[in-house]
Design a protein around this nucleic acid. Structure first.
Lengths: 333, 333
DNA sequence: TTGTATGCGTTATCAG
DNA sequence: CTGATAACGCATACAA
């Protein structure tokens, strides 16, 4: 199983065997063949641990995402992201460790649950920070582990890849306004930088349109859930909203359900725009207008940025991916 | 950064430092404190490579899933699975490597793209086999790497955790029949063991109900896609089907879209039942009746089985998880 | 309670 | 073109 064994089988030295296998120095054709066939016979597989120990490289990175156990749906966004990361990993022959943490685990629990960080192991890490993870991010930086933030920005000193959440929501608000909507409600999360940016986009667009920001139309929650989405939508209907911006793919489902349960006509009585884009959104009635994020690309690009860092490049990159409005029918005419 | 350094700092031996850190033998309170504080000062993190090399254990497993790049939706099922696996991993302090392969990559390409298998590294592996991966599975077995199959069964010698696909589909057919449906169409995949089992369930239920299996009502495809789902549904409408069983969460979306586009009344003109259960399925109109799989549990359980194997238990376990009908409205009355 | 010393499987250096 | 050997950082058997 080891180089040593193959060396014994072939009568060559460990060094020659290693070089023959890796093509890292000239080896006679004769020796090469002997080594290769012996390796095949015993089913030789290199021992990564030894290689890592020697080279100080694991060819492995980790991605650490929040996993809200009572809201599994939010994770689908990260699935697309992970597939994007995987694509880059495949191209570069890296392996990917997927780790999770509980975003509601409190300050000290938030990120470090990822034991992968506490061990000298991965070459780099992609992190989706929570609002409590500044300290962990700092410690990652201090231990010299290459990293890139993703989806959410938590500070100015880190490389980061996010969506243009602010613009995405602002676009949606403008679309509502263009359709004659005047009382636009906002359902969002306040627990993450992402949520805050979306809220900021809402306020900004309102201001730009000279529309007042009515507190009764703004419903912020610490976390996302279907039930919470329903609840908020009910509240907004009572307040006389004629449009709802649900800044998250879970909330929008709840909101939609509540609207339908109440028998509201969409979009005549009340318009609705959601976040993220899945095929099913075109399948509900009316088909949902939504703010699309480039999830797969986000994964691919954040992996690319990390790879660049692993290559020794020192620049800090802040990449903001554009969102796009997927205009279907739920927003109005 | 290493035990050696801490040994130097504290004036103790490497052995004592190691034991103090790991609590693996008695150490005087005095020494312990010295070691711990020194470790904290220099930010000591154990070097996994060295530990792995020494102990021949990585505390890491891998899961290898098919990733159909032109059908990202299918992946969401595996996201739920992965979260289930993660839960077990969290409990047992293992890390999880997520690897993918192209299910349409042809025979030789199918599984081995997962380089993780070609390296002596992970302690065990969870594999979703494709119909072409028997050889790879055999080679995994031959190299003595503990493994468990998941979602699909490819042979009789491997431990395996799957859903009861056959029964799930049969239940759906019976429900259709109970609602007076007589010409029940089947849209399915033939490219995987999963698809074949679902098809078998369809035939079995039909036979049990003394209903003929009309070839014109059976549409099998090598792979899943939204477009293909639409196409099949159109065909089935032409053939006069009064019900459609779409044995996959992507196909059912396509089928639903086609039905709506054609202005069919659901479920009066034509009923439809899908596979897998997502929140959005309750949000379309009419709410979709579907065959639910226990995705999260499947992940948790398959991880459990693998852990058992890693613990040295030699039994082969074949676990079949029950499916359940989520009865909403699209099937009929 | 502590220390010494070995070896895990590689890569890479240095010497032939 | 080839070989001997050191070192990577750790766990642990053995000795004291």
């Amino acid at each position: 199983m080891s180089l040593k064994k193959i060396a014994e089988m072939t009568g060559l030295s460990i060094a020659t065997v290693s070089h023959a296998l890796n093509g890292t120095r000239a080896v006679s054709e004769d020796s090469r063949e002997k080594v290769l066939s012996a390796a095949k016979v015993v089913g030789y597989r290199p021992n990564m641990a030894a290689r890592m120990l020697r080279t100080q490289k694991s060819n492995t990175i980790a991605i650490i995402i929040p996993s809200d156990t009572n809201n599994m749906n939010a994770n689908y966004f990260y699935m697309d992201v992970i597939m994007g990361v995987r694509k880059k990993m495949f191209e570069t022959q890296y392996e990917l460790i997927v780790s999770t943490y509980d975003p509601h685990g409190g300050v000290q629990q938030s990120l470090p649950s990822a034991q992968v960080l506490r061990q000298h192991w991965v070459d780099g890490v992609i992190v989706v920070p929570s609002s409590h993870s500044q300290r962990q991010i700092r410690s990652i930086r201090e231990m010299g582990l290459p990293y890139v933030l993703m989806d959410r920005r938590s500070d100015d000193e880190s490389s980061c890849v996010t969506s243009n959440n602010k613009k995405g929501v602002a676009d949606a608000v403008r679309l509502f306004a263009a359709c004659g909507k005047r009382r636009i409600g906002f359902i969002g999360g306040i627990g993450s930088a992402t949520g805050q940016q979306r809220y900021a986009g809402y306020l900004e667009a309102l201001a730009e349109l000279n529309m007042p920001a009515d507190e009764a139309l703004i419903l912020l929650s610490p976390s996302y859930s279907l039930a919470r989405g329903e609840e908020c939508a009910v509240r907004l209907m009572e307040t006389g909203a004629d449009a709802i911006l649900a800044a998250d793919n879970v909330m929008v489902m709840g909101a939609l359900r509540a609207l339908k349960a109440a028998g509201a006509r969409i979009p005549e009585d009340i318009g609705i725009i959601g976040f993220d884009d899945y095929d099913w959104m075109g399948m509900v009635s009316p088909p949902l207008t939504t703010v699309r994020q480039q999830a797969f690309q986000m994964g691919y690009i954040v992996a690319e940025v990390l790879m660049r860092k692993l290559g020794g490049i020192k620049t800090n990159e802040v990449i903001v991916l554009d969102t796009s409005l997927v205009v279907r029918q739920s927003h109005g005419w």
